[in-house]
């Protein structure tokens, strides 16, 4: 089974647009499980649709809880908290749950043994069945929560199970932006990592960052240049970079009003406007991708 993750480094270059359309095209030909692990801002379900079949809480993080009947208000926990997540309010240690990483230093240093760590739900996993016959799993981090990397790993693990149960040929993962903790977890374990970029200096710079992560994990790299006609010189540099680094250039998507119009309709562009220039380009990319994946 192939596991393909779509990442970008910079946000907003078209990861979800591309993922949704590629997923839609793939579902016509093979058994597919799609996954959205942009757990902070999961958007794939907004264009893929489908019916919510199942939703469960995921406990992938621990938080400190003060047992006030034992707390003497000494403040040692607050002094030692590496995240500065504990404040003394009057004679009480108050944990700001948003900033607690669950490291447990407070519970170790507390002379009264008044602090304990408890598993808390930091996210949820929603499972959608789409009308075109594939399954979509969406990881959602609770607002302001930590542990996004662990949540991403957890969601991917479930997706692999679902894929096995359904006999799917492919798991297609829409990843988070950046090159930090959640992006690292998204790339880890993937057989192929497809980078989406656009020809701007910021997108190119962050493309190089995410590529280093991909290389580290040894996934087969591919590149899609979105809004390719935005600025020709940087596009050439990006293609040159890909060729030099052994990244498969899967194709380019031109600027096309059909893309935002399809998003406004809540549909992948290839299904909303199959004849649009962006759709034709994505169909060519799809063919190249199928060849690259050897499926």
């Amino acid at each position: 089974m192939k596991e393909v993750v779509i990442v970008s480094g910079k946000g907003g270059v078209g990861k979800t647009t591309v993922s949704a359309s590629l997923g839609w095209l793939m579902a016509e030909q093979m058994k597919l499980v799609m996954v959205d692990v942009d757990v902070d801002a999961p958007n794939l379900s907004l264009v893929i649709g489908g019916t919510l079949k199942n939703s469960l809480e995921i406990e992938a993080t621990e938080k400190a809880f003060v047992r006030y009947e034992k707390c003497k208000g000494c403040g040692i926990c607050a002094e030692n908290c590496p995240e500065e997540a504990i404040h003394m309010i009057g004679q009480k240690a108050v944990v700001s749950s948003l900033f607690c990483s669950g490291c447990g230093v407070c519970s170790i240093v507390c002379p009264e043994k008044a602090i304990e760590l408890r598993l808390v739900a930091n996210g949820r996993l929603d499972l959608y069945e789409s009308p075109s016959g594939f399954t979509l799993l969406v990881g959602k981090l609770k607002i302001g929560e930590s542990g996004s990397g662990k949540l991403v790993s957890e969601v991917k693990e479930r997706a692999r199970q679902v894929a096995k149960e359904k006999g799917a040929d492919l798991v297609l993962i829409d990843g988070p932006p950046g090159a930090g903790c959640p992006a690292i977890s998204a790339v880890s374990g993937a057989t192929h990592a497809i980078m989406v970029t656009e020809p701007t200096p910021a997108a190119f710079r962050n493309l190089k960052r995410i590529f280093s992560i991909i290389r580290h994990f040894g996934a087969n790299p591919g590149l899609i240049i979105n809004k390719a006609d935005l600025y020709e010189p940087i596009k050439r540099e990006e293609v040159h970079f890909a060729e030099k680094e052994g990244i498969e250039v899967l194709g380019e998507v031109p600027m096309d009003d059909s893309v935002p119009r399809s998003l406004a309709l809540g549909m992948p562009v290839v299904s909303a406007f199959p004849g649009a220039s962006a759709s034709l380009a994505i169909k060519r990319i799809f063919k190249n991708l199928v060849n690259y994946l050897k499926i």
């Binding site: 979800t16 981090l141 809540g266």
Partner: peptide, 30 residues
């Protein structure tokens, strides 16, 4: 950073005014 996770919370913390820049698309609104 984009998103609404702990890094963003830490970046926003203690600011006097938060500007949320978005676009009118379904993704932006969500």
């Amino acid at each position: 950073a984009p998103g609404a996770h702990c890094d963003v919370a830490l970046s926003l913390k203690d600011s006097d005014f938060v500007l949320a820049v978005t676009e009118p698309t379904p993704f932006g609104i969500h």
